[in-house]
Design a protein around this nucleic acid. Structure first.
Length: 569
RNA sequence: GUGGCUAUAGCUCAGCGGAUUAGAGCGCUUGUCUACGGAACAAGAGGUCGCAGGUUCGAAUCCUGCUAGCCACGCCA
């Protein structure tokens, strides 16, 4: 199905061209896109276009006249009923009633697949998010990326894409060594053995918990094992927690991709060769064009590092690919990883990252370009930070220091649906202040319940209807009134919202749409009764059918947001 | 210092070029209902959209400058 605004824009374009051909409008180049928007008020119709206001200057006519000429040349179409011209030059469209009512049946026929589009049909998409290294329990900050990512994945699926969720991690390196040494120390401490806790080791209680588990399982037999063994144990335990915690809020992954595999299969070095062959690499102790100060800091015996000449692609400074120690920085495997993604055949990739990773994202894009790949399919969805506010105080989080609020704690407090909605109902690039006291105290006053209650009420109607022996078979929808009609147009807005969320990488639009829909639903529910002695049977049937469609759309919206659609509360 | 994000109602936030009254949730005030789950509905108070210029038929929305807050500027990932 084609989106209504898209259909209308095409019809308007045709009408303008027809008017020009007929000499009713002078020849001028049409704008690339014809604006069509939802009307501000119901009295003004369902959709509107201000295109005549834009064209007035080109046409050297008054906007109102231009609008009238366009209206006169509009060909009739199935979805649109009346077209009106309103000052100062708007074209107002009202959807045709018979078409509108037919959509209710279309929604019911589609059921769980309602508003599935064909935009991504036959294409593979991938969403990468969370990607936290397994050094501790998943925090609220990381959860934001996961909620955003999983919702985008759901939206992509609704647009017809075949979608995979992926988690990229690194289980080598200094941080993991520190983790292994920290656990080793906790283990020895628990056994009353002398232990050296690393000065900047991981302070969280969870390592003591893992140490206890190790003792329960192995006694003191691990006392002389090297830190590597403890690293492996910590990693396994932590990953298990992470997966389980994320699954509680409906974040699930198809693939866990280990950075190390890029070393094992040689692709890291292949990328370096590729960049070198294309002239983007040089060896030096400092980057080209480094200041005197920087040069002065280099020790006289310094070895060469290998540099990426990213400045040639607009970067502020060149980046190190391989340290003077011979070890690559994260940049090189990151580029290799993205090449790997592209070569797996994904045509649409979303990379959900915290705002602190912006430089990394830019470097990867330049790396792809330098290596001869098109970074076009890679879409970076940056989100700002989450700060937790508790007792009126902002808490800064640090996994290392053991200062954090875990996802599990939060879910225990307020439930998975509230966690998801709180995070989702915020634009990714606005800072999220998660007020713990409010989330706990007012869990029952949350918009989440307002939205879910709409679904509950629909379910309630059907329970009662079943008892009363009422069905919506052979319902005559033409008996519905204006309020119901308005609600149907709101239902039909959902695919437009999905496409917007997709194009703008803005999953919060879905959250606001769902709330909006609920705001139209509840007043209608009060007035438009199904089971009441004064409601005639055929009217009750028509209304029941409308509520069937409403229920489907609420369930769809909630499910896409990764939330539950309860029948009872 | 450079770059990014943010600044809209008491609080948390949408809106990011369009229709002489700028929206929602929460909170506040006042009402409604012996009808499908009241976690409801209705009415109301509350905002010079950070400040100053500019562009446009039209600006909360675009541009410039300024102010304030957060973040990034590593041979860490």
């Amino acid at each position: 199905m084609e989106l209504l605004p898209t259909q209308l824009a095409a019809r308007i374009r045709t009408a303008i061209e027809a008017a020009q051909a007929a000499g009713a409008l002078p020849d001028f180049a049409l704008p690339e896109s014809i604006p069509v928007q939802r009307s501000a008020k119901p009295e003004l119709g369902d959709y509107a276009s201000p295109v005549a206001l834009q064209l007035a200057k080109l046409a050297r006519r008054k906007p109102l006249e231009v609008a009238e000429v366009i209206a006169a040349h509009l060909a009739p179409g199935e979805a649109v009923g009346a077209v009106e011209v309103a000052p100062p030059g708007f074209l107002n469209f009202r959807l045709a009633d018979d078409w509108l009512l037919a959509q209710v049946d279309a929604i019911i026929a589609a059921d769980d697949e309602v508003f599935t589009l064909a935009i991504g049909r036959g294409q593979r998409a991938q969403v990468e998010c969370v990607s936290a290294n397994p050094t501790g329990p998943i925090t609220v900050g990381r959860t934001r990326g996961g909620v955003i990512g999983s919702t985008m994945a759901n939206i992509l699926r609704a647009l017809g894409y075949d979608v995979e969720m992926e988690y990229y991690f690194n289980n080598a390196g200094r941080q993991m060594q520190l983790l292994g040494q920290s656990l080793q120390a906790r283990y020895r401490q628990a056994l009353g053995l002398p232990a050296d806790f690393p000065p900047d080791g991981y302070q969280g209680d969870y390592l003591a918990t893992i140490a206890q588990e190790l003792i329960a399982q192995h006694g003191d037999t691990l006392r002389d094992e090297p830190w590597q063994r403890f690293k492996d144990e910590a990693e396994a335990a932590i990953f298990k927690w992470i997966e389980r915690s994320l699954a509680r809020v409906n974040i699930r992954f198809d693939v866990f991709f280990n950075e190390n595999s890029l070393y094992e299969d040689g692709s890291v070095w292949k990328v370096l060769d590729l960049l070198e062959a294309r002239g983007y690499v040089y060896r030096a102790v400092t980057r080209e064009g480094a200041s005197e100060e920087e040069r002065a800091k280099v020790p006289p015996d310094a070895q060469d590092a290998i540099w990426f000449r990213s400045t040639r692609l607009g970067d502020e400074e060149d980046r190190v690919l391989v340290k003077s120690t011979g070890e690559p920085t994260y940049v090189l495997p990151d580029i290799a990883y993205h090449i790997n993604k592209l070569e797996r055949g994904f045509t649409y990739l979303i990379n959900v990252l915290g705002a602190d990773h912006i430089v990394e994202a830019q470097t990867v894009a330049r790396g792809l370009l330098a290596a001869g790949y098109d970074p076009g399919p890679v879409h970076v969805l940056l989100h700002q930070f989450v700060t937790l506010v508790e007792g009126g105080e902002t808490r800064r989080m640090s996994t290392r220091r053991g200062e954090y609020v875990t996802l599990d704690e939060l879910v225990d407090d307020v439930g998975p649906d509230v966690v998801r909605y709180f995070i989702l109902a915020r634009s990714p690039n606005s800072h999220l202040e998660f007020d713990l006291d409010l989330a706990r105290k007012h869990a029952n006053e949350n918009p989440v319940f307002y939205i879910q209650n709409a679904h509950v009420r629909c379910a309630g109607i059907f329970r009662q209807a079943a008892e009363a022996g009422l069905t919506d078979e052979d319902a005559d929808l033409s008996l519905l009134g204006e309020r119901e009609r308005q609600f149907i147009t709101k239902l039909l807005e959902m695919p437009e919202v999905l496409v917007e969320a997709y194009e703008e990488l803005a999953p919060h639009k879905l959250a606001f749409y769902a709330l909006d829909l609920a705001r139209q639903f509840h007043p209608m529910y009060e007035e438009v009764r199904v089971l009441h002695s004064e409601v005639p049977l055929d009217l009750a049937k028509a209304r029941l059918r409308l509520y069937r469609a409403a229920r489907i759309v609420f369930r769809r919206a909630l499910t896409l947001m990764g939330m539950s659609a309860p029948d009872v509360m």
